[in-house]
Nucleic acid binder design. Structure first.
Lengths: 344, 344
DNA sequence: CTGAAAGCGCTTACAG
DNA sequence: CTGAAAGCGCTTACAG
């Protein structure tokens, strides 16, 4: 079924398509009665101008490409939700892409494809959270020739806008608190650095806190989930790791889970063994509250980040050049009790 | 920064744009050496053909509009994830829209806007989950003139494809099991029918099971979360409701939570009061497993639904007319222990 | 195997 | 206030 176009409207209304275009775009210089007539025809024929034709002719775009690791993590779904609400209100469309993998190579390959797709779509802006941001990506993104907003850890060598939080500072905050509580044999649930650069930053934060307290890292207390290639499911991998290595480990006095999903897996394992270890979670999760688990965590507010994205996006779409290239967040330690021992 | 177009490539390669177009689209009738030459230029100039120009000229589209209530519910995020993976692999773009509200009027207004946006974008297909599907929506959707796939409860009077599950049957299954266990004073956490049609279907299922057992419904055991307009957050609303009306209610022998999010809130409230009531959840949730809560539920697999969407979408995009307009799912009762009393 | 030309559905100076 | 014409960046018969 063929869509009706501006030509049919023009013919039906007995005017040129220039005029139709003017009324569609609310140009002032249109005779009132002409306008009303055209509007009536548009209404009657259910005509909706094609964004694609319009974008082509104006060489602009009303969609923003959003690339995220996944959408199941509440952190990301919250961001999307915020951005979405504004997008719909502002007549912008969101082209959503997710990579959905923990494998660095897979992710990079997908991201490359995603950038290419956004490119072909001639998106007007791009929002990107990449776990492994590289010089090559920066180059690919630059070729888009559109404003890009990077979310996540700070990238030193970039020309794009950034909404950042310091992974290092977050880990530092959590670790320092545990040390302050007097714990010394602290275990870490993490992935290999090679699997995710974020963990190396987190470990730096841990290290900084230890240095302050004159404590040295005990390699035996680093529990790498990556060692068990069980699943792409973070929680499950952490669960297995905790079950095998932590639950019966008398050494461990407390655990710092370096991911909110890992925290979930850890809790499950501890619960099964009925071991009420003190734990702290890197990142909060709605579910912690829903289930009243009293999980102490280092929080970065995805709502706030979402709002920031909305704001930046709006301005950037208007063609504004922003002064501040980088917006940084202050993470916060939220005490809920689990730092003295998790309850189930 | 102006994007380079097919014209620049043609000029640079010393051929016409027709030829460039042919090599882009892998037409067979191109001289091998011409092709290689053009390819080289394309590579060198980082040329990516514009989807928007191409779509306009071919009067086709490579994006699918997806409209969902929200993206935080695992049921929906799973579906998107499945669809996404396939979309990226097939060079299709997903235009994502969510309504994010529990208010019927708000949702309807947003959906109208969403359909209009998809229309202007000239999307090639649409995937839609609507909590309040109406005749008017059907009409609006028809005007799109594209294949539409409805997910959710069965709509009797529609020409579109449907991927359905029976809410009635699901509720029936859960209720029947509780009755079979011998419970008679069964409480329900639900919303008002007026707030969401799904609940009326669910209550029909409940009724059918009761009829079979010759039991009559006790209105005092219907706990409507909608009565507390606390929050758009299902879990929180259910938590408050349960806390006020269920936790200290000696009458109640078991609870059927008519939403997975409600189940979460209920568990939280029960846990605070340390009341180990038997409960069943309508719908599963990943988190139940992650936390090892042993929640018995009626499950409909979002993975399977996601795969179905992918398959239908692929065929429908190819212009296929499918025989089967409706695909129905069999819900399943998954026993995990909470039907005898929730553990925390 | 290749190019000129028309067309996809809009917008936008330019005349009038 | 309005229309004819060119252009946005592609594709696709139609000739050759």
């Amino acid at each position: 079924m063929k869509k009706i176009s501006i030509n049919e409207i023009a013919k039906e209304a007995g005017v040129s398509k220039s005029t139709v275009s003017r009324v569609i775009n609310n140009h002032p210089n249109v005779n009132d009665i002409t306008r009303r007539n055209v509007l009536e025809v548009i209404e009657r024929l259910h005509y909706k101008p094609s964004d694609i034709a319009r974008n082509l002719s104006k060489s602009m775009s009303n969609d923003v490409a959003v690339s995220l690791p996944n959408i199941k993590n509440p952190f990301f779904s919250t961001i999307i939700t915020e951005v979405m609400a504004d997008a719909i209100a502002s007549d912008m469309n969101i082209l959503l892409y997710t990579t959905d993998s923990l494998n660095e190579d897979v992710v990079k390959k997908k991201e490359q494809k995603i950038i290419e797709m956004a490119n072909k779509k001639r998106a007007g802006a791009m929002l990107l959270y990449s776990s492994w941001y590289t010089k090559e990506m920066e180059e690919e993104l630059k070729k888009l020739g559109i404003p890009v907003i990077l979310i996540g850890k700070r990238v030193v060598d970039t020309d794009f806008y950034q909404i950042v939080y310091s992974e290092e500072k977050m880990a530092y905050l959590g670790m320092k608190y545990l040390l302050k509580q007097g714990y010394r044999k602290i275990g870490f649930i993490k992935w290999h650095e090679s699997e995710d650069w974020r963990y190396s930053h987190r470990m730096q934060g841990v290290q900084r806190a230890m240095d302050e307290y004159g404590v040295t890292l005990d390699k035996d207390l680093l529990f790498n989930c990556g060692d068990y290639k069980i699943s792409d499911d973070h929680a499950k991998a952490a669960y297995v790791t905790a079950k095998r290595e932590i639950v019966d480990n008398e050494e461990v006095e407390a655990v710092f889970a370096l991911t909110n999903t890992a925290t979930l897996g850890l809790i499950k394992a501890l619960k099964e063994a009925d071991r009420k270890l003190p734990i702290i979670s890197f990142d909060d999760a709605q579910i912690f509250e829903d289930l009243d688990l009293g999980v102490t965590c280092i929080e970065r507010s995805s709502e706030v980040i979402g709002e920031l994205c909305v704001e930046l996006l709006a301005r950037v779409f208007r063609g504004e050049q922003l002064e501040e290239k980088v917006v940084e967040f202050e993470p916060q330690l939220v005490l809920r009790g689990s730092e003295k021992g998790i309850k189930f």
